[in-house]
Design a binder for these strands. Structure first.
Lengths: 232, 232, 232, 232
DNA sequence: CATGAATGAGGGTTCATTCAT
DNA sequence: CATGAATGAACCCTCATTCAT
C-alpha cells in the first residue's frame, strides 16, 4: 500500500515534468515559427533554442507538422480565452464583432510574436482556429438574422472582416503606426459590413478591459523570450 | 554584305528562340508556383512540367528565387496592362478604386491560376507589384485630397482595400461563390472607406468592358495549361 | 551525485566516439587523397571508403577543403613528431638538415601513402606544414650564420632542398630504386648547398634510429589500409 | 583547269584559317591553364577568353584533355626550339646541363605564364616533354660516361636537376627574387651533381645570347595576352 | 526519458559535351 | 565551319528522422 503511494507520486511527478517540457517546446516553437527566416533547419533551430536534444523533441512530437499543429491549437486556445469571455457579455452582433476584432488586433499589437506567427505560419497556423472558423461565422450569421449587415452574403462579410485583420497584422509587424490603428481599422470593418458610420465610430471606441493573460501563458512566455534573447 | 545579312538573321532567330524558351519557362513556373503542394522539388517539377532538362533551366535563371521574381514581375506587368488603361479613363478616386478592385477580382476569377499564384507565392509574389505599391497608394492619397475617404489614415485605407481583396482571392480559389461576389466585396471595400452606401452600390456595379488579354499572355497560356493538363 | 557521474560518463563516451570517428575519417581521407585518380566524387569515394553516410561526413567537416586541411595538419604533426626529436639532438646545421631530409625520405619510402598524399595534394597539402615553412628556413638561416652554405640566398637554398625532396618523393612512388636512394639524394642536396663532398658523404650516411610511429598513428593506419584493401 | 586552281586556292585558304584558329585556341588555352583559379568552367572560360563559341572549340579538340595535351606538346616544342640550338653547340655535358637549366629558368622568368602553366598543369603538362624525358637523361648519361657526376645514379641526378628547377619555377612565380636567382640555383644544381665549386660558379655565369622566340610564338602571344588583358 | 551521432533520400547547382540551326 | 541552346549525369550539401547508448 505504501508502495502504491510511492508509485503514484512518481507517476504524478513524471507527468508534470512531461507537461512542463511539452510547454517549453511549444513556447520555443512559437518563437521559431515567428522569427524563422526561411533558412537553416527548423528542427535544429528549435532544439538549440529549447536547449534540448533532437531525440527529446521526437519524444514529444512525431513530426514537424505535428508540432506546428500543436502550436496552432494552443495559440488558438489562448486567443479564445482572451476574446471569448469579453465578447460573450455583449448581446449585439455588431458590438461582439467589433470587440472581437479590437481584441485580436490589441493582442497582436501587444504580442508581435503572435502576429508574426499567424502571418508566417500560413494556412496551417489558422486551420482549425475556432475564433476564425466557428465564432466569427456565428456572429456574422447572428448579425444577419438580427437585420444587421444588410444584404450581405456570409462569405463576403467573412472576407471583409478577416481580410483587414490579416492585413492589419502585417502592418502591425512591419510598420510603425498610430495607437489608434486598431480602432480605425475596426471602424472600417464595421462600415464595410454596413454598420452606420456613427455606430461604427462608437463601437470601435468602446472601452475594453486591459487584456489579461495567465502568467504561464504560452504567448506571454514566447513574447518575453523574443524580447530578451535577440542578441545579434 | 550577304554574310552580314545571314549573321543578322541567325542572331535574330537565336534571340527569338531564347525569348520563346524564356516565356515557356515563365509560363510553366507560374503553373508550378500556383499548384505547388509544398512537396517535392520545385525545379524538378518545373523542368518536368516544361519538358526541359535541368541544365536548360539554369541557362535562363541563376536561382529559383530569380525565377519567382521574374514570374512576379511579368504577372505584375500583365495585371497592370489590364487594369491601368481602364482605370486611367476615370477621374473620381473612388470610381478608380472600385474599378481597380473589380478588375483584379474579375481577373482572378477568370484565371484561378493567377489567384493561386498570388496566394501561394507569399510576400515574394507581390513585392515589387506596382499596382499594389504604387498605384493603389496614389489613388488613396488622391481620394483623400479630394475629400473622399474622410478621416482615414493611408495605411488603414490600404489594409481595408488589400485585405478584402486578398481574402477574396482565397475565397475565389477555394469556394464556390455567386457571380456577384466581386461586386459585393467591392461594395464592402468602398463602404469601409466611407463611401456612401448608395454610391458604393452604384460604383461596384458599373459596367466594365470584357477583360482582354493578348493571346501570347503569360496568364492566359498558364491558365489553359492548367485547364488542359491535369490528368492524374 | 550518482546522476552527475552518469552524465559525466555519457559525455566522455560520446566524446571518445566522436574522436574515433574523426580519426577514422581522417585516415580514410588520407588514403583517398593519396590514391585519388582524379575521377569521381571525392566525398562519395570517401564515404564509401569509410563506410559512413554522406551526412556523417558533414557532421565532422563543413567542406571538402576543410577535410584536406585537417588531414594536412595531422600529417604535418606526425611528420614533425618523427623528425624533430631526432634533429633536435644535433647541433650542426648541416647535420640537422641532412637528418631531416633523410628522415623525410625514409618516412616516405616506408609509407608510400604519405608520399602520394604530398605529391597529389598539391599546394594545399603542404601549406601550413611547419617542417617546411618554419623548421627548414630556420636551419638554413642557422647554417648561414654558422658560416655554412656559403654565399647562398635563403630562397635558393630552400629550393635546392625542397626541390630534390619533392622530386624524390615522386621517384619513390613511381619507380623502383636502390635502397641507398635517399642517401644519395641527401648527399646531393648537401653538396648543392656547398657542403664539402666528404662531409656530405659522411652526413648522408649517419646511422639513424629506426623510425617509430605510435600504433594509433594516422599514417600507419592509412598505410595498412592501403596495403590490405586494394582488391580490384 | 581554272576551276582546279580556284579549288586549290580555296582549300589553302581554308587550311590557313583552320591553322590560325587552332593557334588562337592554343594560345588562349595556355593563358587559361596558367591563370585558372580552380573555379568555374574550364571550357566556358576558354571560349569566352578566345571569343568563340563552344561549338567551335569542339571542332578543333574532342575533349578538354586533348586540349591540355596539345598545349603541352606545343609548349614543349617551343622550349626545345629555344634551348636545343644553344645547348647543341656545347660539348661538355656539365656545360650543356648548366646552359639548359639557365635557359629554362631564364625563359620562365621572362614568361611567367609559362612557369605558371608548368606548375599548375601538373603531371600532364610535362608528360611527353622531350627536354625533360629525352634530352636531360641523355646529357646526364653522357656526363657520367665522360666521368663527370661521379658515382651518381641517373635517377638521383635527374631529381637533383628537375627538383630545384621546378621549385625555382614556383619561386619565380610567387616571390620577388634577385636577378641572379637563376644563376645561383644553377650553380647549386651543378654542385649537387659533383661539379667542382669553381667550375660550377663559372658555368652558371656563362654569357648566353638573348633568348629569341619567333614573333608568332605561342608562348610570346600568350604572355602578351596575359600582360594586356588583366583588367580586374 | 535524454542524448546526439548516424542516416540517406533528395534538394539545388555545375559543366563537359552534343546537335539543330 | 560557326553558333549557342540544350542536355543530363554527377556533384556537393541539407535536414527531417532514427536509434544505439
Amino acid at each position: 500500500m505504501e508502495k502504491q503511494m510511492v508509485e503514484d507520486h512518481r507517476v504524478r511527478v513524471a507527468e508534470e515534468r512531461r507537461a512542463r517540457m511539452r510547454a517549453h517546446l511549444l513556447e520555443c516553437a512559437l518563437v521559431v515559427f515567428a522569427l524563422r527566416k526561411q533558412d537553416g533547419s527548423l528542427i535544429d533551430t528549435l532544439t538549440s533554442t529549447a536547449d534540448v536534444s533532437r531525440g527529446t523533441f521526437y519524444n514529444y512530437f512525431c513530426t514537424h507538422e505535428e508540432l506546428l499543429d500543436a502550436v496552432a491549437v494552443e495559440v488558438g486556445r489562448e486567443m479564445l480565452h482572451v476574446v471569448d469571455p469579453v465578447v460573450r457579455q455583449l448581446a449585439d452582433p455588431d458590438a461582439r464583432l467589433a470587440t472581437g476584432v479590437l481584441l485580436c488586433l490589441g493582442l497582436a499589437r501587444k504580442l508581435p510574436t503572435l502576429a508574426s506567427f499567424i502571418i508566417r505560419g500560413g494556412a496551417a497556423a489558422l486551420s482549425g482556429n475556432e475564433l476564425l472558423h466557428d465564432y466569427l461565422p456565428r456572429d456574422i450569421a447572428a448579425g444577419m438574422e438580427a437585420g444587421q449587415f444588410a444584404g450581405m452574403q456570409p462569405r463576403v462579410a467573412f472576407d471583409l472582416v478577416v481580410g483587414p485583420v490579416m492585413a492589419g497584422l502585417h502592418t502591425l509587424v512591419s510598420t510603425e503606426v498610430d495607437d489608434d490603428f486598431p480602432t480605425m481599422l475596426t471602424q472600417g470593418v464595421l462600415m464595410a459590413l454596413g454598420v452606420a458610420p456613427e455606430r461604427a465610430h462608437f463601437l470601435a471606441r468602446q472601452p475594453l478591459a486591459e487584456i489579461r493573460l495567465p502568467a504561464e501563458s504560452l504567448l506571454l512566455r514566447a513574447e518575453s523570450r523574443v524580447t530578451n534573447l535577440p542578441h545579434e
